[in-house]
Write a protein that binds this DNA or RNA. Structure first.
Lengths: 261, 261
DNA sequence: ACCTGAACACCGTTCAAGT
DNA sequence: ACCTGAACACCGTTCAAGT
């Protein structure tokens, strides 16, 4: 949770309030800051130091400016984080079949791919995004995620799922199953890889270390059995395999209940 | 993220370090605090004020004690939160079929239920827990979750999934699919209901309000279509239905790929 | 053994003031 | 219009001191 709010309270989104003073009239020379620069610096700092390492004062220092200057452009820290969230949401390549007609530059006569391929692309993009920006996960849980890029992603996801032929009243369930899985899975993956980067060890080394510090405990029995199955594989191989199979389960389930309800 | 650590760094778990001074020798009169009291007060405060409203100073005030007294019993705020996490993880009723033999008081000659029933019980317990304690979700993402109660839950989950007859090398995928879904779904549910409690409105009222403030936006088109399907139902009905169907998808997928790999 | 008080190095944010 | 400086009300935690 952002530390700015002591108590959970009605917090309106940036996207539901007027943006602060982004207008710069005519050909007047910009002196230093602006929205784009601030958001870029925010994302850079979040990538480098993590959510806990980010502060308004630290950001201002990075921008070579006094602590309070940023507040001219941005109402609160929360609003800034919402803007950063939506900015990186725009990094995903959405499947062309799921982009609304109005957004498509031209109608290519290519055969639309299988919905399962579209789903695999979209989930893979989402996964990579969450791993690339580990600070994104907690923010997605914190805000409404109704910025333009977040909405474009959400719309694409809904269109892809609609392409499965599932009846309308089961779309949200299928979407929820798939995207909550990808979110949780990728959040863990991102945290683990960030931790390794910080510690300066490989993922396989850290896994070894964690294993050996827990393995003598008797309660660990069940997990040991489970992990025997992935012996001899790297962490990355195991994870990719696990991700693919889990998605296969979801797709198989959706098709099974679609075809025989 | 806990605000205590500026930067992500190697943070050992409470469960991997010696516990702090819980020993009280003989019949000496306890003066005031102890682990149990502190953890109980922590959970109470977290339930009442949320994670953002919790602070060591606030906790101390609740306990009628100076800010630093708690540090005699607990090393850091993070350790305390880990203890609170494991404490509430013990609130779940684990399916008897998934409790290890040593833990069972006696072997009742009852027929073991279908693995799908066991799974539905366990996921339902997990869901209710996450909704009851909305602060739990971020903490689960933050720590290693290797306390005794967290381990018991994890072991139960693994046993249930093993009861499905799935081959060993697909167990983790199935577990991941199911539990990441329940985690994400219930996290959102818990946050929404907590927000309603704070605002003093019903869930249906808040949904109405959020809808009407976004519905004129053109990007909202796809979501409107999706939500038509649940017209005339309460938020709670819609959510329970969505949860059940998503779990049905997962179960169907697991059985489909188990029987025809 | 257990608790206190003062202090340190941080926060987000307000507000009056400068240019 | 844009930026600064000082100040306020908070944090988690250290450390020397009290009983």
């Amino acid at each position: 949770m952002a530390t700015g709010s002591r108590v959970t309270r009605p917090r309106s989104s940036v996207w539901l309030s007027e943006r602060k003073a982004p207008k710069r009239k005519g050909d007047q020379q910009p002196v230093g800051l602006d929205h784009v620069k601030i958001i870029a610096a925010t994302v850079r700092l979040l990538d480098a130091e993590g959510l806990a390492g980010f502060s308004m004062r630290r950001l201002a220092a990075d921008l070579g400016v006094t602590a309070m200057s940023v507040y001219w452009y941005v109402e609160t820290k929360d609003h800034l984080l919402e803007l950063a969230l939506d900015a990186v949401m725009g990094e995903m390549a959405l499947p062309s079949e799921a982009v609304q007609p109005a957004e498509q530059l031209e109608h290519l006569p290519t055969e639309p791919r299988d919905w399962r391929e579209q789903l695999r692309q979209l989930t893979s993009e989402y996964r990579k995004l969450l791993v690339r920006h580990p600070w994104l996960s907690p923010l997605l849980g914190e805000y409404f995620n109704i910025g333009p890029n977040a909405m474009a992603f959400s719309n694409a996801a809904q269109r892809v799922m609609r392409n499965s032929g599932l009846p309308d009243d089961k779309i949200t369930s299928a979407l929820s199953l798939v995207y909550q899985f990808v979110y949780g899975f990728s959040t863990i993956e991102g945290r683990f890889s960030a931790l390794c980067r910080t510690l300066g060890v490989t993922q396989d080394e850290l896994l070894q270390e964690v294993m050996s510090s827990v393995e003598e405990r008797p309660e660990f029995d069940e997990s040991r059995k489970t992990m025997e199955a992935s012996r001899g594989q790297t962490v990355e191989e195991t994870r990719n395999r696990e991700f693919t199979i889990a998605l296969d389960f979801a797709i198989a389930g959706i098709e099974a209940l679609r075809d025989a309800p």
